[in-house]
Design a protein around this nucleic acid. Structure first.
Lengths: 218, 218
DNA sequence: CGCGTGTGAATGTGATCACAAATCCTGCCA
DNA sequence: TGGCAGGATTTGTGATCACATTCACACGCG
């Protein structure tokens, strides 16, 4: 008589830590070059070094963190060339995701996207960098989820992860007074069912945000 | 007897294991659905479970291995939809890499590509699946390295990794009597400096190999 | 005053152990 | 004969420890 211990709810410690750090990095709560130590994170989260090591190893594998020659991990400080590459990847992948989502994008989805866009505008008004990045990514993810292409979306999210700390550092340098104007173009193309216009709007939105970045000194 | 106490230059055990398994998976030495255990790999490589765990966690993060609900790891058995997605990613990314490599593709590179293609033909003649996959990937990687775009290349290699076991399983099912004919088209486009033709040839080469796969039952 | 240097603290790596869940296998019962 | 219940084994998870290397900071020499 084994008691049905429905235990699969609670996830492993290394997995919780992974998710926590991943979210933190993606939305820009960590600045570039920030160092993370095994014992520090372990103490901070009340676990031993073992699950911390696994979580960090996973994040390093995804490019969310970089590894120094001596094994120290820190958030990445991206070079100009690296930023250009990641922008090119976004410009390559995200129009494809949007095109795949287009046939399945109904009114309810467009409404949700509009709502996210409103939240994004509020983040701009409050000069809240983290909220801005989060709502911006939510806008894209919500659209792309309709593409029903998890493998492609996973690649896109990996790119976002790598850009997280850098986007946060960028936020303070550009003068923002409105949400991305391309988001409105994306919504218009979705309503019109116009795939070429949608691809163009997504590509413009993705490359525009990162263009300032590469122009600066860095 | 000789207690070699200090070994500073050597790479870490978990890193060696990671590289070893990654190579094995990418060239198709492991079939889909193959289970890997911590203690098994540890004993097999003369290390403890700790470095094995880190290597596996890293490979899982890259999609090279899948994780069951109970934490077991095994090589992935890809669904049809997943294969289609990965093929689409290759078709999206690799033409871009080839176009970036084109301006830097000189005679020496084309010669090396031809040599790799010859080795590929030998693998076909010997019905050696692993050699076939390895030389095929070498052909692409050698070309893409010239693109000087490590981040984009890394994404491409991640896709190859995910397809490794499946490509091996596929190899036995298709009748191969010649190396990919598109490789010759790629070489011709490189010699002619024709970027549109190069993009088309790469795209055709990439999608052609995986088209059979999706058509079969799987 | 500047800079290399040495010592102590901090850090990553790997091994080992305890524990619980999952899996496998055997044998029993319908 | 078929399926299922039981226990033994396997397996992943997390904690703790020892050790070598790396880093940081302050001291001392030029």
């Amino acid at each position: 008589m084994t008691t049905i211990s429905t235990r699969p709810i609670e996830t492993a410690a290394h997995d919780r830590l992974y998710r926590y750090l991943r979210q933190q990095i993606m939305v820009g709560e960590l600045l570039p070059g920030q160092a993370l130590t095994l014992r520090g994170l372990a103490k901070q989260h009340g676990v031993s070094m073992t699950p911390v090591r696994e979580a960090l190893r996973r994040l390093v594998a995804e490019g969310a963190l970089t590894l120094t020659a001596s094994g120290r991990v820190s958030t990445p400080e991206l070079s100009n060339e690296r930023i250009e590459e990641l922008a090119a990847l976004r410009a390559l992948i995200e129009p494809e995701l949007s095109a795949r989502a287009l046939p399945r994008a109904h009114f309810a989805l467009i409404d949700r996207l509009s709502a996210i866009n409103t939240a994004n505008a509020e983040a701009v008004a409050k000069h809240d960098a983290v909220s801005y990045i989060r709502t911006n990514l939510d806008f894209h993810r919500t659209l792309y989820l309709r593409a029903q292409s998890p493998a492609i979306l996973a690649v896109a999210e990996t790119v976002w992860l790598q850009l997280g700390p850098t986007m946060r550092a960028l936020y303070g340098r550009v003068q923002r007074n409105e949400p991305p104007r391309h988001h409105r173009m994306i919504l218009a193309a979705l309503r019109a069912g116009d795939e070429p216009a949608l691809r163009l709007a997504v590509r413009a939105d993705v490359t525009n945000g990162l263009r300032h970045l590469a122009q600066r000194g860095w």
